[in-house]
Write a protein that binds this DNA or RNA. Sequence first.
DNA 1: TTGCATAGGGATAAATTTTTCCCCTATTGT
DNA 2: ACAATAGGGGAAAAATTTATCCCTATGCAA
Lengths: 125, 125
Amino acid sequence: MYERKILPNLNCGLDLIGEVLYGKWKIRLLWFIHQGHQRPSELQRKIPDASRRVLNIQLKELEEHELVVRKVYAVVPPKVEYSLTDFGKTLIPVIAALGNWGDEHEERLRTVILKRLGTSGELGE
Amino acid sequence: MYERKILPNLNCGLDLIGEVLYGKWKIRLLWFIHQGHQRPSELQRKIPDASRRVLNIQLKELEEHELVVRKVYAVVPPKVEYSLTDFGKTLIPVIAALGNWGDEHEERLRTVILKRLGTSGELGE
DNA sequence: TTGCATAGGGATAAATTTTTCCCCTATTGT
DNA sequence: ACAATAGGGGAAAAATTTATCCCTATGCAA
């Protein structure tokens, strides 16, 4: 695993939440798990742009941060289910707030983001 | 400027907000500007762990995303002031929600984060 | 005249994150 | 035997983000 060389700041609430949510796919993972998509393969289908590898890595981090639990069933073929911990559940309203803001300002956001990318055409599949 | 090779997804609200907030210091910049610290040098003092360079870059991105405006005063020594746009202001409650969650769970977060870092000692001054 | 503060840019290096590629487990079905 | 399924992991490459270093310019103070 990668060993950080620059230690993070943990001074305020924003630093702290950043530390557990900062990761390209983490918020989406939490959201989809919240919605009931609990198995790795389901999550991978829900987030096809992420490689299987990163999802595993980020799920493990979420688990280490106690936001999700990983339940392994002793069956074949293997079956694994992730679910939110009570702690993780407290994050749902916050994530919802993020998503709502994005939805409410969708049009404008799309415009400014595309303008900055200097693209006018086809994006994200 | 760096040219993205992988285009971002802009499918849902979470993608969209991620696109404008994803950057190590952006949320803090918005927050401090909201609190009235509008000049670059002030912001740099508030966020001493970020290099001057990145702050400039991220401020410019925030500006391009229309979350802040940059006002330049034609004086010497140069004076610049950033402030939130109306659009940027709509983001404040969301950022507050993030910060509050972090504050509310400070102790637990510190614990799980430090455990994962495998550190037990001194961190971020 | 040198040094400081203010604001910012370019080039390059370093750090970090994400992707790619390939491999392993075990069982059931063909 | 071999593929398919389901869940992972290591190594290395690629992508991306941050940090470092050095430079410009002006007016003021020591």
